[in-house]
Amino acid sequence: MRVDSEYAIETQDLTKIYHARWSGGEVRAIDGVSLRVPKGTIFGLLGPNGAGKTTFVKTLLSAVRQTHGSALIFGRDASDPEARRPIGYLPENHRFPTYFTGAGMLDFYASLSGVSASRRKKLIPEHLELVGLSQWGAMRIGKYSKGMLQRLGLAQALIHSPSMLILDEPTDGVDPVGRREIRELLVRCESQGVTIFVNSHLLAEIETLCREIAILHKGKVALTGKMHDLTAGKGYRLTVTKPSDALTEELRAKATSMAARDGLIDFQFPSRELVNTAVDLLRAQQCEIESLAPTTSTLEEVFVRTVEKK
């Protein structure tokens, strides 16, 4: 097995098969997933319900044992407890014991991550402040709202200065302002070299945040790539009254697509420079411009296309 620590996560043919106890049937929750997450990036894992996202994350954390294949965390076998030392994890539907205070909860999980008592004493107030809970540190977490628990969970994931954050629905239950703060915090973490692996169903959020994504579908990797490559359908749609044939041909050569309808022609241009050139050419020939609008191929479109195709 190749060990390559330039990747924060590297899986090879990772498979988890659940066997039904009595019927003998089996379910392939993840099926031959080979994925590489480079260090220092924000990586999004997407997929419809039941695609195997949570099983994949749990396999990385060794909460689920793979049937076959391998998973490496910074080049170390994921089943080795030491491989989890550089990870900060925020689970979806977490259930923090309600007998903790906010500060007590951070203290407990930080000590499990090997943070010394003196460091914890310094880090706990800092991290409570970081997530906007400094006034709530002494309060039992049974009194916290869902959004506050989410913030506290994030502080818990960050407190031991991890090299990688694995976040399952990190903004679940958080209000819009809080979401923006969390996004800013994660971008700040990225700038400090922390790898961030986000599992979320909020496509707009993934699109805003992530540099690379993978879409899981029916346990397999259906699509993976850099965000700007996958959403390269971005551009401008220029609608004009039918120009001369020569000009139409000239514009068609610059455009990525052309479609005629009701005496109008739609040109799709990939960049602002090209659409400006087209506008100059059209105006030089006194052609009428009906409309000009930016277009995007959103992550949602990419996602739906990928999932429906499979």
């Binding site: 749990k58 909460a63 407890p81 491989a83 994890y89 689970p91 977490h94 259930r95 818990q156």
Partner: peptide
């Protein structure tokens, strides 16, 4: 059993201890 509750055990298992 309380330690094994979903949402709690995953977080404990994510820590660097056997």
């Amino acid at each position: 059993p309380s330690v094994l509750e979903p949402g709690r055990i995953e977080l404990l298992l994510s820590k660097p201890l056997s």
